[in-house]
Design a protein around this nucleic acid. Structure first.
Lengths: 135, 135
DNA sequence: AAAACTTTGCAACTCAGTTGCATAGCTTTT
DNA sequence: AAAAGCTATGCAACTGAGTTGCAAAGTTTT
């Protein structure tokens, strides 16, 4: 059994040819990728299939989605132990020069004291600026 | 000179009837409002005009926009002294029950230590959860 | 091998945001 | 005060990301 298959099976995703390919492409990325960008990595691929593949991956916490404010949602692999709980969350960085969106996996979302009677569920924190490569 | 006119003029926005009305509506909101919601506050108003009015207001820092991840951008008045610099930024809260988006004006975005050679420009931080009214 | 379920692919739609263009309304110049 | 010029407004039509319906292809179960 291939390693990729294993990663899918671990997350209760039936390993099809398409899904293996998508996971492979996602694994190769250094930054988060949009549906459109993913589509362009393939010679011939249907947007709907990729869309639904990403949804399936996200539901099963193999990947997480990032709304970086650019108008297109980006996707990136979760860590193996990730359950997408608040404690698993990290900061994302959008470079305004190269337009890449990075997971700053080592930077946890800082603790916040909300006003009285506000209950926290999750936090989206996107930092914009210039990344190390573009500097 | 009316107070509303004054606020517009202070920000170098020519005070037209439409703009005064829009500013009035925005001032009355307890939470941030989308273009569509704004449109519905008027009997008869053109989306384009409202859209361009909001853009003008935003460019001149009378209001700021909030991408709360719901798919529709929200707008809220800036404080009088706001220049929309990082130090002016605050946390936004999206209630998953009532779907309202609030400016937590008193909660500044926490300081972050970015990886080496990353330069910060701005931060978008949206907390999701249940607000005090819905609890 | 047939029946039942899942995945894939095409087309077509939704919805927020945006642009083009003509008209209406000011402002400035003569 | 009329003409010329600029700004704001309103309608229609478009864009692009995301999404759904449905039928065909592929798997799994009986």
């Amino acid at each position: 059994m291939k390693e990729t298959d294993n990663k899918l099976t671990m997350r209760n995703i039936k390993p099809t040819a398409m899904r293996e390919l998508v996971l492979k492409v996602l694994s190769e990325q250094k930054s988060a990728i949009s549906l459109l960008e993913l589509e362009q990595k393939f010679e011939k691929a249907d947007k709907t299939t990729l869309y639904r593949t990403l949804k399936t991956f996200e539901e099963n916490k193999l990947i997480h989605s990032i709304d970086d404010g650019t108008g297109s949602v980006k996707y990136a692999l979760c860590k193996e132990t990730c359950e997408c709980n608040p404690s698993d969350l990290h900061v994302h960085f959008l470079c305004t020069k190269c337009k890449h969106t990075f997971c700053l996996n080592d930077i946890a979302i800082p603790n916040l004291t909300l006003p009285a009677n506000f209950k926290l569920e999750t936090i989206n924190m996107v930092v914009k600026g210039i990344c190390a490569n573009c500097k």
